[in-house]
Design a protein around this nucleic acid. Structure first.
Lengths: 215, 215
DNA sequence: ACCTGAACACCGTTCAAGT
DNA sequence: ACCTGAACACCGTTCAAGT
């Protein structure tokens, strides 16, 4: 691997196009990401195959390695994207509500709604496919940002005396556990015979009752 | 498949050995099951490979097909076994406690303890690997038996007026969601930095407070 | 009845080679 | 710089054949 390559940048060969539409794609990285999401939605996470993704994009099955370290990195990128839109969904849930209490409930509904409508993303995010952010610090940051939205909401409600004065982190982990449990059982189809919306509503009621301050 | 086989039980060929040690194993089915569990514990569910399992047992990689329909059936059998010991663990948790309330808490601890110490079984049982009991009615029965232990405990505590008079099934689904959420986050390593025992204790406290009857 | 061995259609990943 | 094609070491499953 001669390092002289680096300094030898030949002048742009034809005019000065931003991207010269080389080979098949302008932005293969983006295309790979989108195709992966599409496949996950259609066939689940284990249905994602580098060969199939490549073929569907009219590209060699090894072209991906120019843009991602390996298959795990592809999935991690999907998860990262998921965490960003997840956090937005949560924040929007809180923002649209009149009272802090209503905002809390709205956040719960938003949580499960995201898990159900983006179950492919959700599974990649929390299903243990990406090995808990170990390899991707950016992913870690995105994930804990979502957790922070929850902690903030709790702190605000503790300040008004509406929630118990427990360690907010501890309480946030509990709230997260509850919503995660409900979401997982629903998208895994384990709660069959039960209406998902009703399930969430009941859970939020009972959850809330368990953490409010005694008047 | 001639049904005459059933009535034609030939006399034991040499003395009266329980199993005549044919080929490599007396009970290959059992051996396959145990090897699968061992592999799952060591390398996770996706580490289970029919070829490797066979090789480790000194048997061809296709020998398994005499005893299980396919790989999914093997995992389903592991799950079924898991459900049985799971139910026992739950029941034992309730039985060992003095009061009904203490029994309830004990059951929660037993739930998460099982998930943590048998995380391989737990993941196969609830991780969506066996496609929610669809193919195995026996598995379905085993799973709902475990759920019934929970429903029974709830009904008993509703009778004494200790728990709210909600639909016991609905309440059981909620309690299950909470414990499942806590268990999953713990065994997925998502709750890092938190003591698992403390996490469970806090969860049970808050959970309980949310479903007790108002005095 | 129980197991084998070769074969088939898949995987992810590497690497020399093309443009 | 970006992509290809052949190759490697893996999969699960089928099926004719052995004992």
């Amino acid at each position: 691997m001669p390092s002289s390559v680096r300094s030898r940048r030949p002048a742009a060969p034809s005019a000065r196009r931003p991207r010269k539409r080389a080979y098949h794609h302008g932005d293969l990285r983006r295309a790979l990401l989108e195709e992966a999401v599409r496949t996950i939605q259609a066939e689940g996470v284990e249905g994602v195959t580098l060969r199939q993704v490549g073929e569907r994009l009219g590209v060699s099955r090894t072209a991906l390695y120019r843009h991602f370290a390996d298959k795990g990195a592809l999935l991690a990128a999907v998860a990262r994207e998921g965490f960003r839109t997840f956090r937005d969904a949560l924040a929007q849930g809180v923002a649209g509500a009149a009272t802090a209490e209503a905002g809390f409930a709205a956040m719960g509904h938003a949580y499960v709604r995201f898990a159900v409508t983006h179950s492919s993303h959700y599974r990649v995010m929390f299903g243990g496919f990406v090995d808990a952010c170990d390899r991707d610090p950016e992913l870690e940051a995105e994930a804990s940002a979502g957790f922070m939205v929850l902690v903030d909401a709790i702190v605000r409600q503790q300040a008004t005396g509406h929630l118990r004065a427990d360690d907010p982190q501890q309480m946030a982990r509990y709230v997260w556990s509850v919503m995660h449990g409900v979401a997982m059982l629903i998208i895994d189809g384990q709660l069959r015979g039960a209406d998902p919306e009703a399930e969430v509503a009941y859970a939020i009621d009972r959850l809330n009752r368990g953490i409010v301050a005694v008047r």
